[in-house]
Design a protein around this nucleic acid. Structure first.
Lengths: 325, 325
DNA sequence: AAATATGCTGCAAGCGCTTGCGATTCCTCC
DNA sequence: GGAGGAATCGCAAGCGCTTGCAGCATATTT
């Protein structure tokens, strides 16, 4: 409110505080058309990754005076209803969409509701976004395993499910990174070594079980999410295999429990991503150009990776591969 | 909107859907004074328990047409600012407070802002609440360990921290349950066996480390949260002790990772609590009497508990205790 | 000292909905 | 077929704020 003397301003503010008076947000919204609220949309809430990103984004938004509305789209039906109706119209000025790759129609829907948009873990044309270099991270992860001397490295990935909202681009990119590393090393890709399942402990366990019955089992696996990697570790332990002596596991996310379980993983500063997404959105709402932030991931070595126990030279698909490490 | 013929209603609704029109919530709020929004207040977001409860509550509220505003009060400063200002006034009709024991002033503040209140994991006079029978659950947990034949059972609890908003009533009640079970069994309480630390993997690890240097180390521990129990397991493993052969650990929450780690724990239907809290609040907002729901917890046996390896009859404080199991 | 410029204040209109009341239409029953 | 009653509809006021403008009180300039 410009054009008011600073003493008057101060007096009013003091009086307001004393009487416990606040401007009615409803009236203010009606008059200005701005809600001073941001919506955050996630596919699940009860996962570490989402709590972390939402928390960081929320803090950032709150510091700027915005409230945050939360929407959990747990099923495709909910997703459809959310994007199919002008749910956000007049409720928020912008929206942060996390780990959901919105389609063209969905982006149009948001735009027609007057929403500024920022994406986290997804990308869109002309839309602000923050995401990890998943291809590079996947490649680096697998390179590390190859450098340790592993010759049969498996990939456990997140299945693109019909019945789920999760998945989408990042998981697929990690697969691409995996394949790139294999190609670089002159190794052939093998279908059996690529297993997909739902992004959960159980899914990781199931995928690992399938690997263990392969004709020639791998000696290491790059797992596209830490939670799945936990499941993989469990199966290996139950199978009587020692990690990392008999089998190396490399995860993705740097979940807070990696420390307990000694899981080597790819870290990508989850909280930082949430904060960046909030900042991008604030920028966009203030008329800034939407930007896209790519973030690198880094290898965090713990106790789940080691060179393979026996280098059986002639039992691999590519017998002449040198141990580069 | 009563008093409108059903055909007119239908025609209008169809037209609305076609044109993508929605009533402006701001105007509607201004006119009615109802926001159709509920606030959820938590001390942390990035923990499994909170994601789970918020998710369940959110789903329930959304089904009833309410939006949900999220507030994370991570520090005492944030908490003070939140309750000290009429932050919710005109923004929400009610609030679900999770795992924060609000003081009298704080409850008054909420009431003066016209908020209906429901508590989860806390209690207040005349306030709807849902919580676990923590005393009973703690007692049951410790009874199980005693029944297995353990004679020196430790308690690892959540420290009531100055710098934290967490803690409060439930953790203290679990301690009471622990002591009750000891008394029942005719065992003396020992200060060294009661260790407190922050509610995290690291805190649990630190507390367990302290137990391991006790003059006569315990053979089992009841840990007041699964996350702390994970830390305890890590320390035991690093110390070269086998769980459950050398040491039994019993957690609390039935965290989704208990399965992977084989942690025996007390389950208390976290999602159900979130849903119940939402229902209580909806009831209260519709003029119902606030009710208080107590929920039982149940023992989930996995692989972290077993009878002590050697029953050293004469090395315990209470040498004549029979192994009742 | 007068004129001009500047800073501040108060007033009125309007944001888009709800709500109650009076007007209108339709139905029913004698 | 007409009157009474019920169902339906349209209208206007008002929710509490923002915003622009007119008006007044200062400050600045010549």
């Amino acid at each position: 409110m410009p054009g008011v003397s600073s003493k008057t301003r101060k007096r009013v503010q003091e009086a307001a505080a004393e009487l416990g008076y606040t401007a009615s947000p409803a009236a203010s919204r009606l008059a200005t058309g701005r809600t001073m609220t941001v919506a955050i949309v996630v596919p699940v809430l009860a996962k570490w990754f989402f709590g972390k990103t939402i928390g960081a984004a929320t803090q950032e938004l709150r510091n700027t005076g915005y409230d945050v509305l939360l929407y959990e789209l747990a099923t495709p039906g909910q997703r459809e209803r959310f994007f199919g109706s002008p749910r956000l119209h007049g409720r928020s000025d912008g929206v942060i969409v996390i780990a959901l790759q919105p389609g063209k129609k969905e982006l149009e829907s948001l735009a027609s509701q007057g929403q500024a948009v920022a994406l986290l873990g997804a990308e869109g044309p002309g839309i602000g976004s923050v995401s990890v270099d998943n291809v590079g991270a996947g490649r680096d992860a697998v390179r590390h395993l190859l450098n340790l001397g592993h010759e049969r490295v498996a990939f456990i990935g997140i299945r693109d499910e019909e019945g789920s909202n999760l998945g989408g681009v990042p998981p697929r990119q990690r697969l691409i990174g995996y394949r790139k590393a294999l190609v670089e090393a002159g190794l052939a890709r093998e279908g059996v070594l690529e297993q997909f399942d739902e992004n959960s402990v159980g899914g990781g366990a199931a995928a690992m079980s399938r690997l263990l019955v392969a004709a020639r089992a791998p000696t290491a696996a790059f797992v596209a999410s830490d939670e799945m990697a936990f499941g993989a570790l469990m199966v290996l332990r139950r199978a009587g295999l020692d990690v990392p002596r008999d089998f190396s596991v490399l995860g993705f996310d740097n979940h807070e429990l990696c420390e307990v379980l000694g899981l080597t993983t790819m870290d990508h500063d989850v909280a930082g991503q949430g904060q960046d997404a909030a900042r991008l959105l604030l920028d966009t709402m203030n008329g800034g150009q939407p930007r896209s932030l790519g973030r690198p991931a880094r290898l965090v070595i713990r106790e789940s990776t080691a060179p393979p126990r026996v280098l059986r030279k002639n039992s691999t698909a590519q017998p002449d591969l040198p141990a580069t490490f």
